[in-house]
Design a binder for these strands. Structure first.
Lengths: 194, 194
DNA sequence: TGTACATCAGTGAACGCGCGTTCACTGATGTAC
DNA sequence: TGTACATCAGTGAACGCGCGTTCACTGATGTAC
């Protein structure tokens, strides 16, 4: 195994372990010393592969975005021939499902870079990919709207579903059981269908 | 001025300064030493009034909740006789307006106690007060629904508006101008009106 | 194939900083007589 | 009103901990000849 291979292997290993740590305990629990201990390498080795811990956290989020996108697409497949609203519901429930299965990891997507200068490009790009999936059903629902109006509605709907999932998962609303969330999502999405 | 008065005055002063600091630089920027410097007291004096910094941050959030509730009610007043949807829009836009005017302070409401054991009671209570305002228009819109269903829809609508405001304010979505947000909110709320 | 040298992944103790919180002490305010 | 004492707000240096990051050094791997 060449040194370049070892380097790449360590990179993968670190991302994997960091993902596990974040999934288990959240973004703030990611510590250089712990990680080195778990990876069986020294602290310095981490900095040989990543410029700093944030870069590693970003890499984890990149993977999370990919996984999230795949999960949403998976949820959509059985409904490929269904009505636009039902496709949107399927995607939203897949989104909710991912967030419920990986609450800390999903949360890390939105916790990162709050202190950094705006959002990084790859982040916005990844979100755009998600939006691209939703754009389909929305423009089908509103065939007469301009592209810009479709954009707006796509983003409004995503934000709505995101808000429901966010406040629901974090228990920030009293008097809600977690199995109410699909109903809430359906209520919003069904209302939107003309 | 009695010692009790001085104590109460210091408490108010600290809350005021902490609010200013959080408004300016966010929750994480609240530091005991800075605060003491600004208040013209010692670090220890803070701990004479508050058990710890979190308690102070909670007090700030309490005030923020009050201010937010008042702002939403203010926005509602001119529409008291309007249709339910228009009242919901008025409230939502007041909510958006508050968040835009006080982004960091508003954000602190949702940043706090993520590490603590669930949400504190007064927090849920304050949120319930907000919901109580929205419950009115919603039950007027859906007179035939059970109280529980109204609860669900109220919370779904709040969460949706919250999600739109949250992602919008933090610039987390590409291709959106900030003055698109009212349109997005209107789109969702108008869709809901039967 | 063997030898000498260069490179660079890998090491981990140490640096440096930030920051919440404490605590022995001071002195102003309030109370008792 | 005046005096002696008690209380407790207020002090700020010091404690203690956590943690990201660095850097002089080591040794395994790769290269040149």
């Amino acid at each position: 195994m060449s040194t370049a291979d070892r380097r790449a292997a360590l990179r993968e290993k670190l991302i994997m372990l960091a993902t596990a740590k974040i999934s288990e305990s959240g973004l703030k629990a990611l510590k250089a010393r712990d990680l080195a201990g778990e990876a069986g390498c020294s602290v310095g080795a981490i900095y040989n592969v990543f410029g700093d811990l944030d870069e590693l956290a970003m890499a984890v989020n990149g993977e999370t975005f990919k996984a999230l996108g795949a999960h949403v697409l998976d949820g959509l497949v059985p409904f490929n021939e269904a009505a636009p609203v039902d496709r949107m519901i399927a995607m939203s429930e897949a989104y909710l499902d991912f967030a419920c299965q990986n609450p800390k990891r999903w949360r890390a997507l939105f916790d990162i870079s709050l202190t950094r200068n705006d959002a990084p490009d790859w982040y916005l790009g990844a979100l755009d990919d998600l939006f691209a999936i939703i754009d389909g059903p929305v423009s089908e629902l509103f065939p007469d709207l301009s592209a810009q109006d479709v954009r707006l509605r796509t983003r409004a709907l995503f934000s709505s579903v995101h808000g429901i999932v966010l406040l629901g998962i974090e228990n920030r609303i009293s008097g809600l059981r977690s199995d109410d969330m699909p109903d809430m999502i359906r209520f919003i999405l069904r209302s939107v269908a003309p």
